[in-house]
Simulated scan of single mutants.
Amino acid sequence: MPTGTTKPRERFDALDEQTQARWLVPAEAEFCEYGFEKASLNRIITRAGESKGRTYHYFADKGALFCATLERRVRHDDFIDQFRKAASASDAREYWLELTALCARLTKTLQGDGRLASLLRTLHREAAAQQSFAEPLAAIRGSIDDLLIAGQSIGAVRDDLPITLLTEVALNLIATLDRWFALNGSTLSEEAEAALSQRAFLLLMAPLLPPRSTEAMSI
């Protein structure tokens, strides 16, 4: 049971999903409509039908609420499972096929989920939103480390460069691609966006492949 020394976010995580939604549903609507900087914590509290005191019992500030809101959406789609499938692949072909499938799934999800796409656009556009999401981003970095190490063990990922460098390259490319599609995807048809997403995934693969490797590129 939460105590007086428990951190606000830990107290919130201990709540049942229905109670959490009392804040996260109106928060999602607010952040999607106004972005991060222009979003009003007071409006969210009013929409939630909660008091400021009770809200601050669970959230240190607006940034903590944004973080919880985006984490909820990311967890709901459970993309981590597909990361795990790729990490447990038995050979290079299976490894890259799983990641290609993950890319296609993410594209389809964003096409059908305007609110998640809006939250990601806010994350890319506003530095304050990025700062509030720093801890989950660090966890994502760790997951990519593990994924690339697993790829090296089966010859899917090059092993002639430090893993930290490969992770940095992957993260920068993922951020660039994600940012571009978040900001421009709405101008494309679903078919065009899906096809472009698959071609763009080759940009991510290329610097990670073992030198002179053609196996993964032929899938």
Results as ranks from 00 to 15, higher is better:
166 L>C: 10
194 A>I: 07
200 A>F: 14
219 I>H: 03
132 S>V: 02
121 R>T: 07
160 D>G: 12
186 S>N: 10
204 L>R: 00
154 I>N: 03
153 S>F: 08
188 L>I: 06
124 H>A: 09
179 R>M: 10
174 I>M: 11
177 L>N: 07
141 R>E: 13
202 L>A: 08
215 E>M: 08
184 N>G: 04
148 L>V: 04
179 R>G: 14
140 I>H: 12
128 A>H: 02
215 E>N: 07
211 P>C: 05
198 Q>H: 11
188 L>F: 15
184 N>H: 15
191 E>Q: 14
160 D>P: 04
203 L>H: 07
118 S>C: 07
203 L>I: 12
155 G>Q: 07
190 E>G: 06
139 A>E: 11
144 I>T: 11
146 D>I: 03
198 Q>K: 10
176 T>P: 01
121 R>K: 13
153 S>M: 13
155 G>S: 11
200 A>V: 04
192 A>T: 13
212 R>K: 13
172 N>A: 15
166 L>T: 05
155 G>R: 09
162 P>I: 09
210 P>T: 01
196 L>A: 14
143 S>H: 12
147 L>S: 03
171 L>P: 00
128 A>W: 01
172 N>S: 15
211 P>M: 03
140 I>D: 07
161 L>M: 11
143 S>I: 06
160 D>S: 10
149 I>W: 03
162 P>E: 07
117 A>W: 00
164 T>Y: 12
122 T>M: 01
154 I>W: 04
182 A>L: 01
186 S>K: 06
150 A>Y: 05
135 E>K: 09
130 Q>A: 01
185 G>W: 05
126 E>S: 04
207 P>Y: 02
188 L>Q: 12
214 T>M: 11
199 R>V: 14
184 N>P: 05
216 A>E: 02
124 H>F: 15
155 G>M: 08
119 L>Y: 04
150 A>N: 04
160 D>N: 14
214 T>C: 05
125 R>L: 08
128 A>Q: 06
213 S>C: 14
157 V>C: 02
179 R>E: 13
186 S>L: 08
129 A>M: 02
